[in-house]
Design a protein around this nucleic acid. Structure first.
Length: 813
RNA sequence: GCCUGGGUGGUGAAAUUGGUAGACACGUCGGAUUCAAAAUCCGAUGGCAGCGAUGCCGUGCCGGUUCGAGUCCGGCCCUAGGUACCA
């Protein structure tokens, strides 16, 4: 049989489509698997990352279908976002037109891969129907106090009169006009994800089985729980006078209360109210004011990498235990949003404080004894015993932490506090192509949500996207409205939502085929959720996956659903690289999936991408390896002529030749390997494919027609998830598709008469011995010694190690 | 800067999780087939030395634990992803 992929692939894609082959059953008594890959942003064309993502989830889906599960494997489009506006700016295309044309094109591209999607559930997040329910959720969150407005700091380009995303700031300048970017404060909407910080942290335990450890660790560190002491520092009399009595104290948080006697200065964030007051009242020299303004203008990312800098604010606070006067500084490394934006600095026992103190000549006071006098070089941050700490001298610092907190609580001057790194989620974007935030500003009623029956609040089509200003704000009439509460003239909110909001609940919408009256049917969600296998890029390890986890919990508490976690199992795939770096248009190192499919067919593309590397790893593109994948399929087709029995044949194993036995063994080993990668969820398809190649090579070493037939029966079953078109073609022809079901493993095939043991001397391999399975340890050791006599000459054996089934190690002197 | 990964032949990788390093492929070389080429098939292929049996070296670098380390521990280098200086 000649292998013509295009004809075969078209045939099966048409058949699958016409029979709606991959739509799940409505029968909710069936065991289910919800297999989900992260939906694509419709950027214009699919790229190799998509091919990889959807091939992986497709292979998993196909496997579970054959194993008897009701499988949901949906697809949709994450269609709001900046690139549509960038295209509008560059090519004067309307974001909507650009987006939906891209979707139509990419849907066709994906279809040529033979992916087994449930088609009735497809949607784009920019569809007004999707926006409608999302706005409903946002309003419900507002009503429950989960959404609020506050002042935020954003990147602002004065030339373009627009807010810039971090990505649009290139070396501190605007991507369009190269003007220097400044920070500007404006109101924005926040979702109170921090209310769920503890649950998000605790529930990571529920994911230990199903999620990569790496991702759990990243999320744990991101949430960043820490326990410590919160207390108030009071300004000295003279300092209070200086601020004209407006400020008398401020709060600090520390995780190291045990070092409190070592405080030699305190540091405030550049955004701290005290700093603002000093600037407003002009209480510092011009030089200092300029330095502070420079700090305030530096975005946080940049502050993180720049050198530590500070300014002496010429104020003092009183040490709560010693009564000593301590100077107050402003420092660029203190974060405004964490622990009150103020820290107590202990240079002797914190490296960052140490460096700052060294730079500005502030005292270093040792309060935890260190062995060497290393404080000349760096801070001592390990455990130890307290010194120079009054009544706490001689106490272990771990105990002192607790005791000092107790003392503060007893005196009523501080308390134990739990802090999280996690911050509330700012969802405001000053852009056009997003879901409008459904609120109205009324001069008399204040902030009022839109009425639910008026949803969705949709985008106006008649806008011009220029990159200057905010299109919704600039629109002549769109924002004019009447207040839903009092009916008076009011203004519509012109901010749209962060696109992470859409990707935080799309998996729920898939559970029902696009209902119009509800976001999803409760009984569908109860049946399909949680997602049994989520597949997507490692780059989403924190933000998307954390927001989706949060949203699930929030919707649960709003009464919409009844689950705690959305994704039971997670597979994070590596990126597709070429010439060592990420494929991207700007680097000109892309490989077009369409061309690949046209030349070799979808099966080859799928086989290559699954064979080239384990899914978790980065995948380096290699043109000639694609050729190799194609050759394997051709060989598979060519050898199929050896099939003579159109079912699973009965074989008398004992009567077979050595080659025939080996061939059968390799075939079933491949099946075992295949079952294993799904059962352990390692999904290392590369090893299964290698095993099927070994099996085909072994089949080729013999010519028993029964062994050939059995081999194909099993191999086509194993390979179907990877190269579905050709497997369906061959299986239909030879086996009536009956091999696409569970296959039992005949035990006798795997049995071995003898085993080969390595003989190592001092851990170095010297020889091998073949022994029967029942040979006792003593005999094996004796045989090893005889066989390796030449290595043992003149030496004495000190130790003999026998690892059953593996090796013998003789330790000699 | 911080958090989390990764580093094994010319290349992609495998290694039953502490037990024979390099399975399976790609590439290269040699051979068969062919008028010739393509396709296909067979064989060799970690490095160095040797005609050879064989020997020595070898999993980013330095050190450690162990009878035995790609795998565990400490330190470093390079690299990728994330990012909000986390007190």
């Amino acid at each position: 049989m000649e292998y013509k992929p295009s004809r075969i692939e078209q045939k099966w894609q048409t058949k699958w489509q016409e029979s709606n082959a991959f739509e799940p059953s409505d029968d909710k008594t069936l065991p289910k698997k919800y297999i989900l890959s992260m939906f694509p942003y419709p950027s214009g064309r699919i790229h190799m990352g998509h091919v990889r993502n959807y091939t992986i989830s497709d292979a998993i889906s196909r496997h579970y279908r054959k194993a008897g599960f009701n499988v949901l494997h949906p697809m949709g489009w994450d269609s709001f976002g900046m690139p549509a506006e960038n295209a509008a700016i560059k090519h004067k295309l309307h974001p909507k037109k650009w987006t939906y044309e891209n979707i139509d094109y990419m849907r066709q591209e994906l279809a040529t891969l033979g992916l087994s999607f449930a088609r009735t559930r497809e949607f784009a997040t920019s569809d007004p129907l999707y926006t409608k329910f999302e706005q409903e959720f946002i309003i419900r969150m507002f009503e429950e106090g989960l959404l609020y407005e506050k002042i935020q700091s954003v990147n602002w380009c004065e030339t373009c009169h627009t807010v810039l995303a971090n990505e649009q700031v290139i070396e501190g300048c605007c991507w369009r006009c190269d003007n220097e970017v400044e920070l500007r404060e404006m109101p924005g909407y926040y979702i109170a994800i921090t209310k769920y910080a503890q649950e998000l942290l605790d529930d990571l335990k529920k994911l230990e089985e199903g999620w990569p450890k790496q991702v759990l660790t990243m999320q744990e560190n991101w949430i960043g729980r820490s326990e410590g002491l919160a207390f108030t520092l009071t300004l000295s009399e003279a300092s209070i006078e200086k601020t004209e009595g407006e400020i008398t104290s401020f709060d600090v948080f520390t995780t190291r209360p045990d070092t409190i006697y070592g405080v030699s200065y305190t540091a405030l964030a550049p955004e701290h109210p005290i700093v603002k007051l000093l600037l407003d009242k002009n209480l510092l020299s011009e030089e200092k004011i300029a330095a502070i303004r420079a700090m305030q203008n530096m975005p946080e990312v940049e502050r993180a990498t720049s050198e530590k800098e500070g300014v002496d604010l010429e104020l003092h606070v009183i040490h709560p235990l010693t009564g000593a006067e301590i100077p107050v500084w402003v420092a660029n490394f203190v974060l405004a949003g964490y622990g009150g934006g103020a820290v107590m600095a202990v240079p002797a026992h914190d490296q960052r404080d140490y460096e700052f103190a060294a730079k500005y000549g502030l005292p270093v006071k040792e309060v935890i004894a260190s062995d060497k006098s290393q404080l000349d070089k760096e801070a001592y941050t390990l455990e130890g015993v307290l010194v120079n700490s009054g009544e706490f001298d001689g106490m272990k610092n771990s105990k002192a932490k607790r005791e000092i907190i107790k003392l503060f609580e007893l005196k009523g001057i501080g308390k134990k506090q739990v802090n999280y790194k996690l911050r509330d989620w700012g969802i405001s974007r000053q852009r056009y192509w997003g879901a409008p935030i459904p609120f109205i500003h009324c001069p008399s009623c204040g902030l009022v949500p839109e009425k639910i029956e008026n949803l969705p609040v949709t985008l106006p089509d008649d806008v011009e996207i220029t990159g200057e200003g905010n299109p919704l704000d600039k629109h002549p009439t769109w924002k004019q409205c009447s207040c839903p509460r009092c009916g008076g003239d009011a203004t519509r909110e012109t901010d749209t939502m962060d696109t992470f909001v859409q990707s935080s609940w799309y998996f729920l919408r898939y559970c029902s085929p696009n209902p119009e009256d509800v976001p999803f049917h409760r009984e569908d969600v109860d049946y399909w959720m949680s997602v049994d296998q989520y597949v997507g890029g490692i780059e989403h390890a924190i933000l998307h996956l954390l927001y989706a986890r949060f949203f699930t919990k929030a919707l649960r508490d709003l009464g919409y659903i009844n689950i705690d976690e959305p994704f039971a199992n997670l597979l994070t795939q590596g990126m597709v690289l070429k010439d060592g770096s990420k494929m991207s248009k700007s680097k000109g190192n892309t490989v077009d999936p369409d061309k690949l499919i046209e030349k070799y067919g979808a099966d080859t593309a799928r086989l290559f991408i699954l064979f080239a590397a384990p899914p978790q790893k980065e995948l380096e593109w290699n043109d000639s390896a694609v050729e190799g994948a194609f050759k394997f399929i051709k060989r598979l087709v060519d050898r199929s002529g050896n099939i003579t029995v159109k079912s699973l044949p009965e074989i008398d194993h004992q009567s077979l030749s050595k080659e025939e036995k080996t061939a059968r063994k390799k075939v079933y080993e491949a099946l075992i390997r295949s079952n294993e990668i799904y059962n352990t969820r390692s999904f290392t398809f590369n090893t299964v494919i290698a095993a099927t190649m070994e099996a085909l090579n072994a089949l080729n070493q013999q010519n028993n027609p029964l062994v050939w037939s059995e081999g194909y029966y099993v191999l086509l079953h194993i390979l179907e998830p990877v190269i579905p078109h050709i497997c369906w073609e061959l299986s239909e022809h030879y086996f009536d598709l009956k091999n696409f079901a569970q296959i039992d493993i005949p035990e006798e095939v795997l049995e071995e008469d003898s085993i080969v043991l390595a003989v190592t001397i001092n851990g170095k391999k010297r020889d091998e011995i073949e022994v029967s399975k029942e040979t006792p340890k003593e005999e094996i050791l004796e045989a090893a010694k005889v066989q390796c006599a030449k290595w043992l000459e003149g030496k004495s054996i000190v130790k003999e190690i026998y690892v059953p089934g593996k090796l013998v190690n003789l330790v000699v002197k």
